[in-house]
Computed example of a mutant assay.
Amino acid sequence: MASKITFIGAGNMAGAIIGGLIESGVSPSDITATAPNESELAPLKARLGIHTHTDNSAAVNGADVVVLAVKPQIMRGVCEALRESVQQQAPLVISIAAGLDANTIDQWLGGGNALVRCMPNTPSLVGIGASGLYANAAVSDAQRTLATQLMEAVGIVEWVEEERLLDAVTAVSGSAPAYFFLMFEAMEEAAVKLGLPAETARRLAIQTALGAATMAQRSDKDPATLKQNVMSPGGTTERAIAHMEDAHLRTIIADAMQACAARADAMSKELSGND
């Protein structure tokens, strides 16, 4: 990836992506990160050896890719201040801000920009994330490849061809780490009631989830088949699964994901002023 990359914002997600890029072979000299104060940038500069800047517009000059990694609430002001530099430079713009649609960001940047929206999740912070990406019509095939390479530095990448589907991505991966954390919490509480120490229960639950995810990832079988393979007629697993089915676990999950996607859509309208 022989490209100059500028990150507007130097928070945890930006730092994770930058670290992943460097591990994948990108030279630190090709990466710049910005923040309002040098004190916010010093740890990242010392740890990774990248360039840093407190002037966003100056940092964009010469960049092939600009990653917008600031909070949605301040995105408009950041973009409008960058408008002239972005229009002159014409980089690929990648937004990792939740809830702001591509057209709104493009307008704030002056219009006509090659823009990719990215919905990463928090496991990206440990290099095993899942990101959903959407490209507007101005993004070239080469730029799509560049965006894929950038986000693959912290996990897997899946493209959607309709922007509205990023709400579904939010429901199935963006917010979903919390679903599994809730499962760990519930399993730990139940195991303690069964007599196990909390720490033992936690380690067993987390390791089992890791093992199950790894099996699912490596197998050519679908989850339903893998589930069936664990179950013996009249056995313990069958009894547990039957109880979950009787309790309508599938409906609970489906309803929760629908609520998540609906909230993502509402937030987008609120943040863009289109509600």
Rank of each mutant, 00 (worst) to 15 (best):
A97Q: 11
Q143P: 04
R47H: 09
G20W: 00
K71T: 01
G127D: 01
E162I: 07
P43L: 05
V93M: 07
Q143R: 05
A264F: 02
W108P: 00
A209V: 12
V172W: 02
S39K: 15
M231L: 05
V169Y: 03
N37G: 10
G235W: 00
V66S: 08
D246Q: 15
G211C: 10
D55S: 09
N121K: 09
N121S: 07
L21M: 14
V86I: 14
V154H: 04
G127L: 02
G110I: 03
E152V: 02
S232V: 04
E162R: 15
V169G: 01
L271I: 03
G20E: 01
A256E: 04
I105L: 10
I96R: 02
S232F: 01
T148R: 13
T6A: 13
T225E: 10
L115Q: 02
A176M: 11
R239Y: 11
G195L: 12
V169C: 02
A130W: 00
A142Y: 05
S24D: 10
M13W: 09
Q107S: 12
S173V: 02
I5L: 08
H248K: 15
D255G: 08
P28I: 05
A201H: 09
D30R: 15
I18F: 03
D55L: 03
H53Y: 09
V93N: 06
L182A: 13
C79P: 01
Q207G: 11
F181W: 14
R164H: 07
K4C: 01
D106K: 08
R202E: 07
D246A: 15
L115N: 02
